[in-house]
């Protein structure tokens, strides 16, 4: 019988699930994905977590708890850097350590290191290092990784074509997305695409006849190019993408308004919020609204804001 490995449906799941799934499957394990975020998951995560962490990391812990009794190991990679010269969020760098330090009995944590800063050779060495525990054949590890990479490419193609990560992963049909108004949703994918965290924002907007654009629908080259318009290079990869998407929408006015979803305790978000707001003010092209999310956010206040924002955009359009 194969070992089962759990993958939490949180944080970088929305970016890399197809890569991880295929890679691990090819190495001969069975995959179990945690359930979509629910109140129970949020509560178990927040009760375990240090109070100062951001909501998405707390929720990640809830997903670990959701998995712990039904898998042999949980996959929590240490994603240090995904392109040369940049880092990811400090919490991602320490995620396996944070997980291990939780006051709960977790199964084994599998924590391969993904660090592009070390150069190609050492990046692959760490993948071989990780793969060794499943097979002695270096070739098999290589083949598994390459299969993962091609699954990832297919996934990104679907996202570019307009599928949401959840739709693309489940291979569902892309939901209709044509309204009289178009909103760009900026923010970390784990905030934009987890319907629990953002109180089902995408579905609500679509129900109100608004179509939705996200950063995944913009080619990476454009994101890179737009983010480079900042006077200083941002050294966090994922935040560069958020900024790139928002700048892109502001410049070519392909959306009627931008809603930026940010986590209350997120350090990067707090900086990016200022960058985006000052750019929006300078350009005066597309209205921008920031929505701050934490475990206390009530639906009523958020709905009022989003409703008023949409009213305002429709009003302008007349």
């Amino acid at each position: 019988m194969n070992a089962t490995v759990g993958i939490p449906q949180a944080l970088l799941f929305y970016k890399y699930y197809p890569l991880w799934e295929t890679f691990l499957k090819e190495l001969g394990v069975d995959i179990v994905v945690s359930n979509p975020t629910t109140k129970k998951i949020v509560n178990s995560g927040t009760s375990l977590a240090e109070n100062e962490l951001c909501l998405p990391v707390k929720i990640f812990f809830g997903h670990l708890v959701d998995l712990k009794d039904r898998v042999d190991a949980i996959f929590v990679p240490r994603v240090v850097s995904v392109e040369r010269g940049t880092y990811t969020c400090p919490k991602f760098l320490g995620l396996p350590d944070l997980a291990r330090s939780l006051d709960t009995q977790l199964p084994k944590i599998l924590d391969p290191v993904f660090n592009s800063r070390l150069g190609r050779k050492r990046f692959y060495e760490s993948i071989f290092d990780f793969g060794k525990q499943f097979t002695k054949s270096k070739f098999r590890i290589w083949r598994a990784w390459m299969a993962g990479v091609s699954a990832q490419k297919a996934y990104q193609k679907k996202l570019l074509a307009g599928a949401t990560p959840i739709e693309a992963i489940a291979d569902e049909q892309v939901s209709t997305n044509n309204g009289d108004l178009k909103i760009g949703l900026a923010g970390h994918p784990y905030n934009v695409h987890d319907p629990y965290i953002n109180l089902n924002l995408i579905k609500k907007l679509k129900k109100w006849g608004v179509s939705v654009a996200t950063e995944e629908m913009i080619p990476p080259k454009i994101l890179e190019h737009e983010a480079n318009r900042l006077p200083k290079r941002l050294f966090w990869s994922y935040e560069r993408e958020v900024v790139g998407a928002a700048f892109h929408w502001m410049r070519n006015k392909s959306v009627d308004g931008i809603i930026y979803i940010l986590s209350f305790a997120c350090g990067q978000d707090s900086l990016i919020q200022v960058l985006l707001e000052s750019e929006a003010k300078k350009r005066k092209s597309v209205p921008l609204m920031s929505l701050v999310i934490d475990e206390h956010s009530g639906e009523a206040g958020m709905i009022t804001r989003v409703e008023a924002f949409i009213d305002m955009l429709r009003w302008r359009a007349v």
Partner: peptide
């Protein structure tokens, strides 16, 4: 006569 910005 058109709302251009708001905060709450």
């Amino acid at each position: 006569g058109i709302v251009v910005d708001f905060a709450m």
